[in-house]
Amino acid sequence: MLNCLVLDDEPHCVRLLEDYIAETPFLNLVLATTDAVEALTFLKREEVDVLFLDVNMPTLTGFQFLNVASPACHVIITTAYTQHAVESYNYDVSDYLVKPISYERFLKSVTKVLNKVAEAAQGPAEQAASDFIFVKTEHKGKFQKINLEDIRYIEGLLNYVSIYTRQSDKPVITYVGIGEMEAKLPKHLFVRVHRSYIVSISDIEAIDGNEVILKRPPRIPTGEKYKEALLKDFSSAMIVTPKKKKS
């Protein structure tokens, strides 16, 4: 859970970010204010993971606020002006959101921060992705959380993928390419077995010729390009019975 502070001199922008934070399961709002001094005081005494910060404010600009506060948290700039983008990265901000901010863009930004926090909390040898993903579904404006342990397999079709889970025979459809989806998934949990299929390693029961047998149907085809890597991944667990010599 990421603790969030919102500082913006426009009340309607504050309310929008409050709503977005409330809609996002891994975010927790600890303060939303139009008062820079209140935000500064809060930052000095409380733990904050993400600061959503406007740039053009009357008491202190966003950059003046950063100079004074030197916050030890991830900063996401929220502004109606694009011209501050270059200057903002001198402050090592995590992202730069231009108003009006859509929930899709907001979610992409905070998910990036979540991944950074998760990586920082783990040792280099055990860095891993989160145990869930958010995907934009075929229903307009809906983002769905999917636990990685619930995914059985993923089928790619043109410019979208169908994600099959243990909860339902009906897939969750999201408009991303299978290559992009593969990049989001941890390699110790999932394996690409075909140009059109990714499967959960824990669901694999057997490899039969050019097919992968899952714990329950269907069988998934393997492509020659991927089969060699698949067998290599499982080679350490294989026991090969030698052929009997003819007498």
Rank of each mutant, 00 (worst) to 15 (best):
M1C: 07
D8R: 08
D8G: 11
D9E: 13
D9Y: 10
E10N: 12
E10P: 08
P11L: 09
R15S: 13
L16C: 06
L17C: 06
E18V: 09
Y20S: 03
P25L: 01
N28S: 11
D35V: 05
A36S: 15
T41W: 02
F42T: 07
F42N: 10
K44G: 03
K44N: 11
K44A: 15
L51T: 06
D54S: 10
D54F: 11
D54Q: 07
V55Q: 05
N56W: 02
T59D: 14
L60T: 04
L60D: 01
G62Q: 04
F63D: 06
Q64G: 12
A69D: 08
A69L: 06
P71E: 08
A72Y: 09
A72V: 08
C73E: 11
H74D: 13
I76Q: 02
T78D: 05
T79L: 10
A80K: 07
H84D: 11
H84I: 06
A85N: 09
Y91P: 01
D92T: 15
D92Q: 15
D95V: 02
D95N: 15
Y96N: 10
Y96Q: 07
L97R: 04
K99C: 13
P100S: 12
I101E: 09
S102L: 11
R105W: 01
L107D: 00
V113W: 00
V117T: 12
E119P: 01
A120C: 02
Q122G: 01
G123H: 09
S130H: 02
F132R: 00
F134N: 00
T137W: 00
E138Q: 05
G141C: 07
K145A: 04
I146S: 01
I146W: 00
D150S: 14
I154R: 01
L158P: 00
N159H: 13
Y160A: 00
D169L: 08
V172M: 02
T174P: 00
Y175D: 00
V176C: 01
G177W: 00
I178F: 01
G179T: 10
K184C: 03
P186I: 12
L189W: 08
H194I: 05
I198H: 03
V199H: 03
S202H: 14
S202G: 07
D208V: 15
E211A: 12
E211Y: 13
V212Y: 04
V212F: 11
I220A: 07
P221G: 08
T222I: 13
K225T: 15
K227G: 04
K227R: 15
E228C: 07
E228F: 07
A229V: 09
L231N: 14
K232T: 12
D233V: 11
F234W: 12
A237N: 11
V240H: 14
V240E: 15
T241R: 13
P242A: 14
